[in-house]
Design a binder for these strands. Structure first.
Length: 245
DNA sequence: AGTCCCAAACAAGTTACTTCA
DNA sequence: TCTGAAGTAACTTGTTTGGGA
């Protein structure tokens, strides 16, 4: 192989050449001008890349061998590997940033969807509260519950309950209705309208939703280790936000 | 065993130069 | 032809690490 087109280093090596110059403080431009060829050949790069793929750090013995094969100084090979590691790390950071950004976008859109769903459920809850405040006959109860459910058909559980044909609530259907409401029987006087008011609801929400709109506090975010994060996302198919589903 | 010194290797940042749009 | 951005080989500096005294 012929590499003279690219390198004109002396047999003493790069370091020797640099520090045996006449100046105590070596002139870089002078040195560079003396070595007016810089780029390694495509073949040299290819060999270096191939080696880098198998191991990002070279053993001294392999470094010497590779340098001999490519007609380079061992120090040149060492420097190429150092630079290559730095470039690879930089690219890896870019990739990780892209992954993180995409994860964030997914999470943000999911959060927005959940917020909308929450609003829908709150509206439904208010309607049910309103209905519960009215005195009602047992025969009306089912009808009202059914009406409340049908008002929000987008709700997953809404509209799934049916009254019996005769219009009277059977024990089982009543039980289901009450289950949806999260309440007890008619006789339970402990039920209060405040149990369903928004303050309580917000209290619950504040557990996960902070004033700044973030899902968790900054302290909580710091608990995430980026290494673990990317370790998971790159080593297998598990997505760290999958706990939502 | 603990400490100091030294050399090698490395990461991070910089410089000088080339290439290309 | 000039110019600025991007890429790259080589360098500098500071840190870590392993071995010998």
């Amino acid at each position: 192989m012929e590499y003279s087109q690219y390198t004109t280093y002396s047999a003493e090596g790069v370091e020797a050449e640099t520090y045996t110059s006449s100046c105590t403080t070596p002139s870089r431009s002078k040195k560079r001008n003396n070595n007016n060829t810089r780029r390694f050949s495509d073949e040299q790069i290819k060999s270096l890349e191939t080696m880098f793929e198998s191991e990002t750090r070279l053993e001294p013995r392999k470094k010497l061998q590779l340098a001999r094969e490519l007609g380079l100084q061992p120090r040149q090979v060492a420097i190429w590997f150092q630079n290559k590691r730095a470039r690879w790390k930089s690219k890896q950071l870019e990739r990780d940033y892209g992954i993180l950004q995409s994860n964030y976008n997914t999470l943000a859109s999911r959060f927005e969807a959940l917020k909308k769903e929450k609003q829908t459920l709150l509206i439904q809850l208010q309607k049910l509260n309103h209905l519960m405040q009215k005195p009602m006959e047992p025969s009306q109860r089912c009808t009202q519950v059914e009406a409340a459910n049908s008002m929000d058909s987008e709700s997953e559980n809404g509209g799934t309950m049916k009254c019996e044909a005769e219009g009277k609530p059977s024990p089982s259907s009543l039980e289901r209705s009450e289950h949806v409401l999260g309440v007890l029987s008619d006789d339970d006087t402990s039920i209060k309208v405040e149990d369903f008011n928004l303050e309580d609801e917000h209290g619950l929400l504040n557990f996960v939703e902070h004033a700044d709109g973030s899902l968790t506090s900054p302290e909580d975010w710091s608990a995430f280790e980026s290494n673990d994060l990317f370790g998971q996302s790159t080593t297998d198919d598990y997505q760290w936000w999958d706990f939502w589903s």
